[in-house]
Computed example of a mutant assay.
Amino acid sequence: MTTERIKLAFVVNDVATEQDNYSTIRLARKAVMRGHEVALIGLGDFIYDWEDGICAMAILSKIDEFEDDTVYLAHLQDTELERTRIVLSEWDILMLRSDPAEELVSRSWAPTSSLLFAQLASLERTIVLNDPRHLTDAVNKTYFQGFPESVRPATTITRELEEVRRFLDAHGGKGVIKPLQGSGGQGVFLVDKKNRQNLNQITEAVIRDGYAIVQEYLPAAKKGDLRMITLNGRPLMVENTYASLHRFSQTEDHRSNISAGGGVEMMAPDEKALAIAEIVGPKLIDDGMYLAGLDIVDDKMIELNVDTPGGVSFMEDLSGVDFSGAIIDDLERKVRLQRQYGGALTNRQLAVI
């Protein structure tokens, strides 16, 4: 089938801070290799125009065959590449790929504002992914508590030190404390008898910028976790290979996040992980969570990333499987449906159809 050119815009924190191992860069490079128009928009670059509606100052990519992600990112970050004003109603897809945790200190206004602009953009012909109305709810980890209890570890969310103590005492004196708003393993502490005397300082550090989430410790976490990508609410599989990574710590640090120095290897999900995906899938679909990253330990989902699920570039480099190409295939399919049926399909329907 001949692929019609599509116009695909990515929202990132800031083009200048993107890195060459980010999944967004891999997806954008694969899109321009196919001849699609690609734009990158920073969180502070939106405009509401009284005539044109939602616009943005964007970095427009040239359409070319780039050697790799490093070369492509250098093109996007070229200081001579000026921003161009675009009207989003003229673009087919707006992919929201920013990390709100990175903005907590210096630009706390940015994530919320960008989501409101994205909500308005979704009222026009542009397909906005993931659905911005539910992404507004998912800015912090309270969204995670809306999934079935059977797939979640025991959890408390609080700013009270005594509540943290009570939870730990009820769960063998061991648990994981982390910010309610956070990512990449930042501010995550494992509390046990070795450092319990530091609980006051640990809790104070975590609640400095908001609520703390405290989860029961899962012994299987010693071996790391599984990051599994879902697309349209289902595990992404290409060439009989699941888009899933085993992430593990390479030091005495308990964190297995790639950004925290963890190691990675391809690993197919077991029956427990696939069962979790099947259980959480309906809510992902209902909420328009087109692309998500499930972090799984044994029979529990410990995190859910719906803002900027990553790992795709690592999965491709390890396996040789074109997962990003499969995602672009699916985006092309959505645009064909949107062009065929016009306003008959809502953004929520297009997000997961």
Rank of each mutant, 00 (worst) to 15 (best):
Y290G: 00
I296W: 06
I296L: 11
A39R: 08
V176P: 05
E18T: 15
C55S: 04
A138K: 09
K7V: 11
G325I: 03
E67W: 06
I202L: 04
Y22M: 15
E271N: 14
L8F: 11
A268R: 11
G175M: 02
E303T: 07
I47D: 09
N21K: 14
T155H: 06
P132H: 05
L274N: 11
R34A: 01
L318W: 02
E303N: 11
L218N: 15
G310Y: 04
Q197Y: 14
H246P: 09
Y341M: 05
N232F: 13
I258L: 13
R133I: 10
S61D: 08
I202C: 01
Q77M: 08
V12G: 12
S23Q: 07
L245D: 03
G185S: 09
W109C: 02
T24S: 09
Q340C: 11
G281K: 09
L40W: 14
A154D: 10
F167S: 04
V188E: 05
G35F: 03
Q181L: 15
I177C: 07
V164H: 01
L180P: 03
T230P: 09
L199S: 05
I327N: 04
E37P: 05
Q201I: 08
G342S: 03
Y48P: 02
N198G: 08
R165H: 08
T2H: 12
F189E: 04
L168G: 05
D286M: 01
I177F: 05
E265F: 09
Q197N: 15
V206W: 04
P148G: 01
I47Q: 10
K193Y: 13
L116C: 09
E149N: 06
I86G: 04
G311H: 03
F46A: 06
I353L: 15
D330C: 10
R97Y: 04
S313F: 03
R247M: 08
Y22P: 11
A351D: 00
S122T: 03
P148F: 01
I63C: 09
